[in-house]
């Protein structure tokens, strides 16, 4: 661990990402991005997939102090590949001084990361691409009005899962998919825990190769909660064990925080309108139990 990152006070006090972007008030994705950008810095080129963050920049306004390239929903990792390869060629042939180099960062939502862009992601990891893959996960196709994505959790109501029990499938495990590829680094983070996030970004920054930063992104309109609660929801995701904070490094998965005591998942669920149907007009005992048992099973394995 970087000894310089022990306390909140060690985090940057000035912020790089420009204010005035078009993200919603209380956006958990923007929260994570702004914390991450402070640490990665402006010597970066963000290669953006179609997502809410398509509109981070809209002509002639950009919040970035470094560079940015917009691609398409499926192929941000391939865009990062082209940029990385081109910079390597230019620097390798002495056509560009090394100090002009940039870190390539693919920035995608969970829909791109777990669905339409998964083969491009898999390909990039497989090729050993030297890049950081930042997925902000708001557990649905947020920019189009929160339809279910492969990352939508069990029981959540979305614009396409409005039935009595909400989303019928469980959340696809992006972290495990990455780990199966044996990348140099993978981590889960949440903007609500900036210190844990900072340590991981710091670690990722020092490595070379494919690196995943998977940020849970509480989404006020998509998850239906008051924007002021965005940080509290993120904290509850960690405290209830719904969102394990962990990293994969040197071939091992390590949990950077084991919630103890672990709060019941209901503490997290009941704060969000997308789960309201699980509590009223009457409790959906079965779905609530399934969600709790999935989380319990996860941690039983971790702590075994």
């Amino acid at each position: 661990m970087n000894p310089a990152l022990r306390r909140m006070k060690d985090l940057p006090s000035t912020h790089l990402l420009g204010a005035g972007s078009a993200m919603c008030a209380g956006c958990g994705g923007l929260l994570a991005l702004h914390e991450i950008y402070d640490l990665l810095g402006a010597r970066t080129v963000f290669v953006n997939a179609a997502s809410c963050m398509t509109l981070l920049a809209s002509y002639p306004f950009t919040p970035f102090r470094g560079s940015w390239l917009y691609t398409a929903m499926a192929s941000a990792p391939a865009g990062a590949q082209g940029v990385r390869d081109a910079l390597d060629i230019l620097i390798g042939q002495g056509r560009l001084p090394p100090e002009e180099d940039l870190t390539a960062v693919a920035l995608t939502g969970d829909g791109a990361a777990t669905g339409i862009g998964l083969s491009a992601t898999s390909g990039a990891i497989d090729r050993g691409l030297d890049f950081i893959y930042l997925c902000y996960d708001n557990e649905g196709y947020g920019n189009t009005g929160q339809q279910s994505s492969p990352a939508t959790p069990l029981g959540a109501r979305t614009a396409t899962s409005g039935g009595a029990h909400g989303h019928a499938a469980s959340k696809k495990d992006l972290f495990a998919i990455w780990v199966a590829h044996r990348p140099v680094y993978a981590a889960t983070v949440v903007g609500a825990d900036p210190l844990d996030l900072a340590r991981k970004i710091d670690k990722a920054r020092a490595l070379t190769g494919p690196r995943l930063i998977h940020a849970l992104a509480p989404c006020p309109p998509g998850w239906s909660f008051d924007p002021a609660e965005a940080v509290e929801i993120g904290r509850l995701a960690v405290k209830t064990g719904v969102w394990p904070l962990k990293e994969y490094v040197d071939g091992k998965v390590v949990h950077t925080h084991v919630p103890h005591p672990r709060l019941p998942v209901e503490e997290y669920l009941k704060r969000q309108g997308r789960f309201r149907h699980l509590f009223e007009p009457e409790r959906d005992v079965q779905v609530l139990a399934r969600i709790q048992s999935q989380v319990d099973a996860y941690w039983a394995e971790v702590c075994a």
């Binding site: 499926a74 192929s75 391939a78 082209g82 081109a86 230019l90 083969s119 090729r127």
Partner: peptide, 21 residues
């Protein structure tokens, strides 16, 4: 660089061109 699809191939091609090679 061998990509995993033509969609990615075109993306990488244009991204590299936009980087100046």
């Amino acid at each position: 660089t061998l990509l995993e699809s033509e969609h990615s191939m075109l993306t990488a091609a244009a991204a590299a061109a936009a980087t100046g090679v």
